[in-house]
C-alpha cells in the first residue's frame, strides 16, 4: 500500500484470519496498523496485492458490490467516529445503512425491525437508557460502546477494531475489549484488533501480528508473546520501548 504522496505504508504484508479468531495487531504508531485494517474493507485502496473475503477476491469490486461486502464487516474506531450532534439511537441505526434502500435516507426513515434491533444492540452494550441522548453527552467509554452497537447493527461476520481503547483509560479498556471478546465467543464474530498495550494483547488475543515500518516482523500465538524476550520485543517496538503493565 503506497499513499499518493509516495509514503509506503505497507509492504509484503500477507496473513490469514480464520473464522471466529481474535487477532491482535501490534506495532508502533505509524507502523501501518490503521492502514492495514482500512485496506481490508477498502477504506483505503491497496496499490497492489489481493484481499480475499470468504474465498472471494474483493480487491477490485465495484462500489455497488463493495457495499454488500462492507456491511458484513463492522468497524470500531479509536476516535469512535460518532456523529456528535445526532442521538445515540441515530448513530446506532446508521450501522444499518448498508441494508436499507438509499432513498429512504431522504425521509430519515428506518423500519420498525431496525429500531428494535438498535435498542437490543444498546442493551447488549449496557446503555439502553442513553438511546435518546446526544452522542457527545456520553463519556468516552460509553461512546465507544455506541460504536460497538453500531457495528453490531451490521450483523457482522468480522469486526475491525482500530485501536478501540487508545483514547480510553485502562479500566474502560478492559470493559470495551470485554464486549469485543463477548461478541467473539458468543456470536462467533471474527475480531481484528490493533492494540498498543501488550498486557491487553496477552489477555484477549488468540493470535498476534507485529508490524514495523509496514512489514510483518512478528507472528505468533499469545503464548509466544508471553515468552517473548526483550530483544524480540525491541525489534517490534524499536530501541526505546519499555514493556509496560506486563507480567
Amino acid at each position: 500500500m503506497v499513499y499518493p504522496d509516495g509514503t509506503v505504508a505497507l509492504r509484503d504484508v500477507s496473513f490469514e484470519v480464520k473464522d471466529g479468531e481474535f487477532l491482535g495487531v501490534i506495532g508502533l504508531s505509524g507502523s501501518g496498523k490503521s492502514t492495514l485494517l482500512r485496506c481490508i474493507n477498502r477504506l483505503l485502496e491497496p496499490t497492489s496485492g489481493r484481499i480475499i473475503w470468504n474465498g472471494k477476491d474483493i480487491t477490485h469490486l465495484p462500489q455497488g458490490e463493495l457495499r454488500t461486502v462492507r456491511r458484513e464487516i463492522g468497524m470500531v474506531f479509536q476516535q469512535f467516529n460518532l456523529v456528535k450532534r445526532s442521538s445515540v439511537l441515530t448513530n446506532v441505526l446508521s450501522g444499518r445503512l448498508g441494508y436499507t434502500p438509499p432513498s429512504w435516507a431522504l425521509a430519515n426513515r428506518f423500519s420498525r425491525q431496525d429500531r428494535q434491533m438498535a435498542v437490543r444492540a444498546l442493551e447488549r452494550v449496557g446503555i439502553p437508557e442513553k438511546a435518546h441522548n446526544r452522542a457527545d453527552e456520553l463519556s468516552g467509554g460509553q461512546q465507544q460502546r455506541v460504536g460497538i452497537a453500531r457495528a453490531l447493527m451490521q450483523e457482522p461476520k468480522m469486526i475491525l477494531a482500530d485501536e478501540p481503547v487508545a483514547s480510553l483509560d485502562p479500566v474502560l479498556a478492559h470493559s470495551i475489549l470485554g464486549y469485543l471478546e463477548k461478541l467473539n465467543t458468543e456470536d462467533n464474530i471474527t475480531v481484528l484488533c490493533s492494540l498498543h498495550y501488550l498486557d491487553l494483547v496477552q489477555r484477549y488475543c488468540e493470535r498476534v501480528i507485529g508490524l514495523r515500518d509496514g512489514k510483518v516482523v512478528f507472528e505468533g500465538s499469545k503464548d509466544d508473546i508471553a515468552k517473548m524476550s526483550d530483544e524480540r520485543f525491541r525489534e517490534i517496538y524499536g530501541e526505546d520501548a519499555v514493556r509496560m503493565g506486563g507480567q
Binding site: L43, R67, R70, L82, S94, G95, L97, G98
Partner: peptide, 8 residues
C-alpha cells in the same frame, strides 16, 4: 465510519 458500514 459510514463508508465502512456500507452506506452509499
Amino acid at each position: 465510519a459510514l463508508d465502512a458500514v456500507g452506506a452509499n
